[in-house]
Design a protein around this nucleic acid. Structure first.
Length: 423
RNA sequence: GGAGAGGUGGCAGAGCGGUUGAAUGCACUGGUCUUGAAAACCAGCAAGGGUUUGUAGCCCUUCGAGGGUUCGAAUCCCUCCCUCUCCGCCA
């Protein structure tokens, strides 16, 4: 959520910023709603003030045994006016809230202009793409030929966009997860968390998946409003909601491995084959909570923490800065890590590291006491994959494939796998 | 699932229809005292919002959440959520 004061006072600046995303903010209707809100709220407060005073007088008069019929009448009169005014106000307020929850975050000045992903800016690249002396296969072919990837059975028992991994392939994914967790916990100073995979709608509103992107989520059939998490970002970040954090505990660095569930209703036809886009996948997620001054540094450190995983696995990748047209709803600035996939002859996203500024913190009321001002101020939230395990598995298969169709185990994973070849 | 107890400020814990946003204690902040520290004493100290150039005033809201009764609710009624204890069941 954007700062409502800023929204009111610098409406045109906000609109200009949002326009970079291609988002059109209807200034006129927002301003007129706000004007009505202002008048109604002032009137409302005045009426309540009168009623409060009258009630107090009644209490005093009664204790003295005086007659109160006159003032009682006045008070009842006020209540009539108030009821009418209040229903109008609450209607306006809910309209304003609906608009505000639907506004994307303001972009950082560093976000490159652009309409879509083709305008993303490559910041740096790492590693050398391996030269293969034989025709490369993609991960589906590799996994299927080894008998370790079973898409048919997954489709039969669950549906499309699910997968079954067998034997060494299942172990390889688990090894990747364990490997990543170990790096972040032992080398990068993150604290490991185990969190619920089911969360309520308030939680998802806090991190801004709701109300706008409900169709991307799996909702649970229940009398409560519960959803499967689309990423560990949701429970982890919300740990700080409704709290005033002691500044001495900042920055906080959290890591969790969870499955992620995404309905992705809008993406049919994209990446239908293989493990790239699944309804369920494993991910190691990094979250940092910082003060506003240090949040860009936090993003840089979190991004380099994610990069370390790919470097240790010796997987070539590039870091791109998402353009205004491609960046996510709640993000002020995003680096994507794109890993090289020989089977697709392309770089594909394997991690997305975003700075949300106070956007999420405001929604979930995550604050800290700023000792300089003495005020409670909103924290900044940062998160990124460190990295997506399903896609890391794809990258290992395709980059470490050998002519005979077997897969060499990356050096970094040998101790986790206790073998050097997957066959 | 059955029986009971309870949810109040950063924490502990009073209040149980009326000038109570809320006693008291702890913690915290400032001051006095002290060579310094501790102790003692004095003072301040909830959150959110509106108005406003304003961290000044003034005003509104908030005692788990949502309804209701009332001129007036932390206090009474209803529904829900959560926590704790005991029993049952279970990984």
């Amino acid at each position: 959520m954007l700062d409502p004061k800023k929204l009111r006072q610098s409406t045109q600046d906000v609109a200009n910023n949002l326009a970079r995303r291609g988002f059109q903010f209807d200034i006129d209707s927002y301003s007129s709603l706000n004007e009505s809100r202002k008048l109604l709220q002032i009137e409302n407060d005045n009426l309540k003030n009168k009623r409060n005073k009258a009630s107090k007088e009644i209490g005093i008069a009664k204790s003295k045994g005086e007659d109160v019929t006159e003032i009682l009448k006045l008070s009842e009169n006020i209540n009539g006016l108030l009821a009418n005014n209040e229903s109008k106000l609450s209607q306006i307020l809910s309209q304003i809230e609906f608009i505000e929850l639907g506004l994307p975050n303001l972009l950082s000045d560093r976000v490159p202009d652009g309409k879509n992903e083709s305008d993303n800016e490559v910041i740096r690249s790492w590693g050398n793409k391996k030269e293969f002396s034989f025709p490369v296969k993609d991960h589906v072919e590799l996994g299927s030929n080894l008998g370790l990837l079973d898409m048919d059975n997954a489709a039969r028992i669950s549906g499309s966009r699910f997968s079954v991994l067998r034997g060494n392939l299942a172990s390889l994914q688990r090894a990747l997860i364990q490997f990543m967790l170990d790096i972040h916990i032992n080398e990068h100073g993150y604290e490991e968390f185990y969190v619920p995979f089911i969360v309520n709608s308030e939680t998802l509103t806090g991190t801004s998946q709701l109300p706008k992107f409900e169709s991307d989520l799996f909702k649970i059939e229940s009398d409560k409003s519960l959803y499967l998490i689309p990423t560990a970002e949701v429970p982890l970040t919300n740990l700080f909601g409704d709290q005033i954090i002691d500044i001495d505990t900042l920055p906080r660095k959290l890591v969790a491995h969870t499955p992620c569930f995404r309905s992705e209703a809008g993406s049919y036809g994209k990446d239908t084959k293989g493990l790239i886009r699944q309804h369920q996948f494993e991910k190691v997620e990094l979250v940092q909570i910082s003060t506003p001054e240090k949040s860009f540094d936090a993003l840089e450190s979190l991004t380099s923490n994610a990069e370390q995983v790919l470097q240790k696995l010796e997987l070539p990748y590039q870091v791109v800065s998402l353009s205004a047209g491609d960046i996510g709803f709640g993000s002020a600035f995003t680096y994507d890590l794109e890993v090289w996939l020989p089977g697709q002859n392309a770089y594909r996203e394997i991690s997305s590291c975003s700075l949300f500024g106070d956007f999420q913190a405001r929604r979930m009321k995550a604050r800290y006491k700023n000792p300089n001002t003495g005020n409670n101020e909103y924290l900044h939230t940062i998160n990124g994959s460190g990295v997506a395990a399903g896609r890391a598995l794809v990258a290992v298969l395709e980059n470490y494939q050998q002519e005979d169709g077997t897969i060499k185990v990356p050096d970094a994973l040998i101790s986790y796998m206790n073998k050097k070849i997957i066959d």
